[in-house]
Write a protein that binds this DNA or RNA. Sequence first.
DNA 1: ATATTATTTTAGATATAGCTAAATTATTTT
DNA 2: AAAATAATTTAGCTATATCTAAAATAATAT
Lengths: 218, 218
Amino acid sequence: MTTAEENYLKAIYHLSEDGKKSVSTNDVAREMKTKPASVTDMLRKLGEKEMIEYRKYYGVHITEEGKRMALQTVRKHRLWEVFLVDKLNFAWDEVHEVAEELEHIQSPLLIQRLDAYLNYPKFDPHGDPIPDEFGDVKAKPRVALNEMEIDQMGQIVAVKDSSAAFLKYLDKVGAYIGARIKVLDKVDFDGSIEILVDQKKNLFMSKEVAINILVLQS
Amino acid sequence: MTTAEENYLKAIYHLSEDGKKSVSTNDVAREMKTKPASVTDMLRKLGEKEMIEYRKYYGVHITEEGKRMALQTVRKHRLWEVFLVDKLNFAWDEVHEVAEELEHIQSPLLIQRLDAYLNYPKFDPHGDPIPDEFGDVKAKPRVALNEMEIDQMGQIVAVKDSSAAFLKYLDKVGAYIGARIKVLDKVDFDGSIEILVDQKKNLFMSKEVAINILVLQS
DNA sequence: ATATTATTTTAGATATAGCTAAATTATTTT
DNA sequence: AAAATAATTTAGCTATATCTAAAATAATAT
C-alpha cells in the first residue's frame, strides 16, 4: 500500500462510517481535495486490490480487508496524536497535519512500542477512540460539548486542554469530570452554549470552553 | 525538497565527508543502490536547485546550501534514533530503517519539541554527533572500539548497550566510562580486540563487546 | 598518440499520482 | 418519455523517480 492508497482508503472508511451504504466519486474527491477524474483512477486500483467493491458509476463499498487496513491507519494516526500532545506538548488542535504524515511510517514494531510507551491509550486528544491492533474499537466515541444538540444528554469524561488555567476555570464553575449534563441552549451566532449540570446547576460557557470538554453521550 | 532529493543530498554529503573533493556518479549510485542513469537525472535536478555544483562527467561538489539541507536531514535522523532507543527501547542496531523514514517528516516544530523532549542530546545511539538547528556540529565524533586500529588511543566515553548485563560485565572487567585506552591487538578472524586500560591493565574482549563501547579518539 | 576500458550521459521506457477537457452514463425535471 | 442537468469516466497530458540499452566522453594502457 502506498501513502496515497492509504489516504484514499481512510477517506472512504470515514465517509462510510456515517451509515452511508455507498460512497460516491464526488464524495471522495471532496474529502481528498482532488478532482473526480483522479479519484476514478484510484478507485479502480483499490478495487483491483479488493480493498473496495467498485462498480463503475455507482460508487464504492469498503470491504472487510479495506476496513482492516483503514483502521490500522486510523490507529497509527491517533496514537501519534496522543504522542504529540502527551509527550511533546502540542495542543490538541495542532497535531492533525503532523500525524497525517507520521501515520504512514511503515513499522509494526514502532507502533507496538509507541502504544506501550503511551500506556495503551483508548482515545486520541480529540476524543476519538483508538482501534486496537486487530482493528477493534471497544470504546464509545466521545463528542466535544460544542458539537452536541439541544436536549442531548451525557457525562463529562475528559478535557482536551489540560492546562492549569483551564482546569482551574472548570473547577470554579463546577464542571468536573463525571458530571452529568444536558444541553439547554446553543447560540448560533458565537457558538456559546448553556448546559444543566447534575440536574440542578445552569452553566453558560463560550464555544472556546465547550470545544475543550469531552462528553460521553447517553 | 522531495524525499528522494533529501536522500540523495544526504548521500552526497556523507560521501563528501571523507575529504573527497568530488563525488562521482558511480559513488552516489552505489550509496543509493540505484543505477548511474538515475543518478545523473537527480544530479542535474539538484544542480539546478544549487544544492550541488554539477559539471557533466566530472562529479559533484556539495554547496554550502546543500550542506545545510543535508545536515538538517542528518539532525532529524539522529534525533529520531535517540528517541527510538531512549524512549521506545529499540536496540541501537535496530533503529536505522525506521529513522530513515521518520527523518522526512516535515515539521520544524516537531523536531524542536523532540529535541527538547530528548534533552538536547549531542550524540545518536551509534556515537555520531547530532548537528544543532543551524547545522553546526560541535561535538567530536565517537568511534566504536571495534573500528579502531592497533596503537590508536582514546578514552571510553559511552556505551551503546546499556542493559544491566552489559554494564555489569564492563564493571567486572574494569572498562569504566572515562578510562583511557590503547589498542594493542586485533584478531582479523573474529574481530576480537586486546586493549590496554589506563596504561596498566590488559583487557581482551570479543567483537560483540567492542562494538558496544564508544571511544573518543586522541 | 591511439586504442581499449571504464564511466557517464542520453534516449526512450515504466509506474504512480495528479490534472483538464471531452465523452459517457445516471438522475432529475418538465 | 424526452430533455436537461449532474455525476462519472475516459483519453491524453504533466511531473517524479525509476529502469535498460545505446551513445558519448574520460581515463588508462599500450
